Amino acid sequence: MTREQILRVKAEEDKIPLLVVGNKSDLEERRQVPVEEARSKAEEWGVQYVETSAKTRANVDKVFFDLMREIRTKKMSENKDKNGKKSSKNKKSFKERCCLL
């Protein structure tokens, strides 16, 4: 799935957690995308670029944890926005909702 497809599906979201990941970094001689091009694209999109290798386990954990960090940051930002805004619904106070018998 390309970035454009993701953005089309998630159009309501203003910032989607993404990373640009180059795989098979251990096969440098068979590289199809130059590092500079990948870094440039990641910079254009405002995301991090990481090269990985499953064979040597290079940066595999880093990519996972970096993406989880991005997701957590987004969730925390969304929660902060929701908690900072007053709800348009009339919520009853705690005393109005509870009744002692």
Rank of each mutant, 00 (worst) to 15 (best):
P34S: 12
M76P: 00
L18G: 04
R97L: 05
K95H: 08
K55Q: 01
K15R: 15
F64E: 14
E13G: 08
K15D: 15
G46T: 02
E12H: 13
F65P: 14
G84Y: 00
R30F: 14
K41A: 13
K62P: 09
C98W: 07
G46R: 06
L19S: 06
S88N: 12
A58W: 12
W45E: 04
M68L: 15
K10Y: 12
E44R: 07
S93K: 05
I71Q: 00
K55E: 04
P34N: 15
K80T: 05
S53G: 03
N90K: 10
S87G: 10
L18M: 15
F64A: 09
M68W: 00
R31Y: 10
A54R: 01
E12K: 15
E96H: 01
E28Y: 11
R8Q: 12
I16K: 02
K41M: 11
L100Q: 14
N90E: 11
K85M: 04
V60D: 03
C99K: 10
K62W: 11
E4M: 07
M1W: 10
K75T: 01
E36K: 11
A11S: 14
F65S: 15
K85V: 04
E96Y: 00
I6L: 14
A54I: 05
E28S: 03
V35Q: 13
L101S: 15
W45K: 02
N23T: 11
M1K: 13
K95Q: 13
G84I: 01
F64G: 11
W45Y: 02
T2R: 08
T2E: 12
F64V: 15
